[in-house]
């Protein structure tokens, strides 16, 4: 990441912060202590006996927790780091999310250890656009000491970004309803999955069409499908993220028990667990006040 091109003025100003201190001689607000260890273990469901009793150590992954400013804010934070964050805030990059954390543990921390730390701004990325918004990745490296001895290294990468605007959630595309297929959509509105059936030769068909593709007859009636089927094939949509859709998601080609096939969402399992042959059953998804769609839920059979 060190040799990327910075082609915006703000990026160049931010880049100049590399190597400057983010915190100098920071002091942990509390020494390492048993109550905070217990609260952590309770929250995370960690029952490791190494973290309790007279010889308890702190969970090593608590390393950063001992340095946190909490609600009352940071102490020891340098002017440079505040200036960097201020520039980003002023540019609209008001939101922050952590993306990477690398910790190395040099010695165990025990109740009573007094924590001190120094932090340097290690890297500022060029401007990046992510799904959350556009902004800059800032990497800091913190050296943490316990009672003056090196105890660990904590490297954190955050994305400081301008949130992408979120309008009201887009609605799913509307189906094209015409004279040929109106009966199908009428059935869906009533939570019935209707197939056309040729009254000449008895062949069911889908999608709805004016004539039979087996015998050519224009005459037909309808039959309600059982709703049972299997995944005949599928695709997983990753990109691009169309409005109203939240990739990744699976789109199935479902073979109904009656022998016709239908394209729709496969729901009830993660997108990467959809497989050919999975048994499914229709259910009716109310997308909004005007639209209901038949989708297929994976079932045990």
């Amino acid at each position: 990441m060190g040799d990327e091109r910075v082609d915006d003025e703000l990026g160049a100003r931010l880049k100049a912060f590399e190597g400057r201190p983010a915190a100098v001689a920071g002091v942990g607000k509390d020494p390492v202590n048993a109550p905070m260890i217990r609260h952590w273990c309770e929250a995370l469901g960690d029952t490791n006996p190494a973290y309790t009793g007279p010889d308890a150590i702190a969970p090593p992954t608590m390393l950063q927790a001992w340095t946190m400013g909490g609600l009352s804010g940071h102490q020891g934070r340098s002017g440079a780091y505040d200036e960097l964050l201020g520039l980003l805030d002023a540019a609209g990059c008001t939101a922050v999310v952590a993306t990477d954390c690398e910790q190395g543990y040099l010695r165990p921390l025990r109740p009573g250890d007094e924590i001190t730390f120094d932090t340097v701004i290690e890297h500022v990325s060029a401007r990046k656009t992510t799904r959350l918004g556009t902004g800059y990745f800032v990497t800091t490296r913190m050296d943490i000491r316990a009672d003056g001895e090196p105890a660990g290294v904590h490297r954190l990468r955050i994305l400081k970004y301008a949130p992408a605007p979120r309008g009201p959630r887009a609605r799913r595309p509307r189906p094209v309803v015409n004279r040929d297929n109106a009966g199908f959509w009428q059935g869906v509105a009533e939570h019935r999955l209707l197939l056309q059936r040729c009254t000449g030769c008895g062949t069911p068909r889908h999608p709805w069409l004016p004539g039979c593709n087996a015998c050519g007859s224009p005459d037909w009636d309808t039959v309600e499908a059982s709703g049972e089927g299997t995944v005949h094939s599928y695709v997983v949509q990753h990109h691009p993220p169309f409005p109203a859709f939240d990739p990744p998601y699976a789109v199935g080609l479902i073979e109904l028990a009656e022998g016709v096939r239908m394209v729709s969402d496969v729901v009830g399992v993660p997108y990467d667990k959809v497989r050919i042959g999975l048994p499914v059953r229709v259910e009716f998804l109310r997308c909004d006040e005007e639209l209901t769609l038949p989708v297929f839920r994976v079932v045990d059979r």
Binding site: W40, P59, Q64, A98, T99, L156
Partner: peptide, 16 residues
């Protein structure tokens, strides 16, 4: 979820 919790859960998974 914040990254510290994720980090802690990953550590717990391995020590478990």
């Amino acid at each position: 979820m914040n990254i510290l919790t994720t980090n802690g859960l990953v550590g717990r998974y391995v020590t478990d």
